[in-house]
């Protein structure tokens, strides 16, 4: 397909991750193309979260290379990484909002750290992101422990988007949300993607989510990408692991 002409936004080659004697990734290759929503699935322990951590260079892999828009992320000094990470927005599994800061301060935190914009502009931008994440301005003054699960997810999304990243990484964004909330959140991701021209990498166990928003899905297993294609391709896969994963989950 279009792969021939364009450079991938994320290129992972020969990634190896080990914890002691357990090998999580054994020469994993992965490309993420600009403007797509890629779903990453796999059984528990298949190394989905480890992959995300390696992408952000929060974890040093044993071997392999990760480049994000052409810039190497492995084995690079922390000071260089700091700039490169600004182009990535990450939504952590449980939101990871800072408990000591109000939602507005949480969202504006990266701007205050990394730019020299004035307070007023920072506040404007944080409030705009709050609205884009589908939250009411009233929530701005609340603290994370006063927010519901769905609101935490949205607030955290607003924080992930505050630096206007090209790449948005979502770690199980709809886990623990009720189906209605989860569907709304998926809609939000789609809207934001088309509005901001984001590339989205999404780890999820939510099959509804995969059907609704992903352009392409990769299935991780045995330390590498076992299968890739659209969700339809996945459910027709001949690899037993993949087929059973999708069959198990179609039942309900």
């Amino acid at each position: 397909m279009e792969a021939g002409r364009r450079e991938p936004l994320i290129r992972v080659r020969g990634l190896v991750n080990r914890f002691g004697s357990t090998t999580v990734h054994q020469g994993l290759d992965l490309d993420v193309w600009p403007g797509e929503i890629l779903g990453v699935v796999g059984g528990s322990g298949a190394g989905k979260t480890v992959l995300l951590r390696a992408l952000l260079s929060l974890r040093q892999p044993q071997a392999g290379s990760v480049t994000i828009s052409g810039d190497e992320m492995v084995g690079v000094a922390e000071s260089v990484l700091r700039r490169r990470r600004q182009r990535i927005g990450m939504l952590f599994q449980n939101g990871a909002l800072f408990g000591g800061l109000s939602l507005l301060d949480n969202i504006s935190f990266p701007l205050r750290e990394h730019t020299r914009l004035s307070r007023a502009v920072i506040e404007d931008l944080a409030l705009i992101k709050l609205r884009m994440a589908g939250l009411d301005a009233k929530a701005a003054n609340l603290f994370p422990n006063e927010l519901s699960g769905g609101m935490v997810r949205r607030g955290s999304l607003a924080r992930a988007l505050i630096m206007d990243p090209e790449l948005l990484i979502l770690d199980e964004p709809t886990a623990g949300l009720d189906p209605v909330n989860a569907a709304n959140f998926d809609e939000l991701i789609l809207d934001l993607k088309s509005l901001l021209g984001l590339t989205v990498l999404l780890v999820t166990h939510d099959l509804d989510s995969l059907w609704r928003i992903t352009d392409r899905v990769v299935f991780l297993g045995d330390g590498r990408v076992l299968e890739e294609g659209s969700v339809e391709d996945m459910s027709r896969s001949e690899i037993p692991q993949v087929a059973s994963y999708f069959k198990q989950r179609r039942k309900h």
């Binding site: 609205r131 009233k138 003054n141």
Partner: peptide, 18 residues
Amino acid sequence: RNIISLVETVPRPEVFHK
């Protein structure tokens, strides 16, 4: 056009700094 229309207004909470 889209980007500019997104930032034209800022939603402000009624009581801002308590």
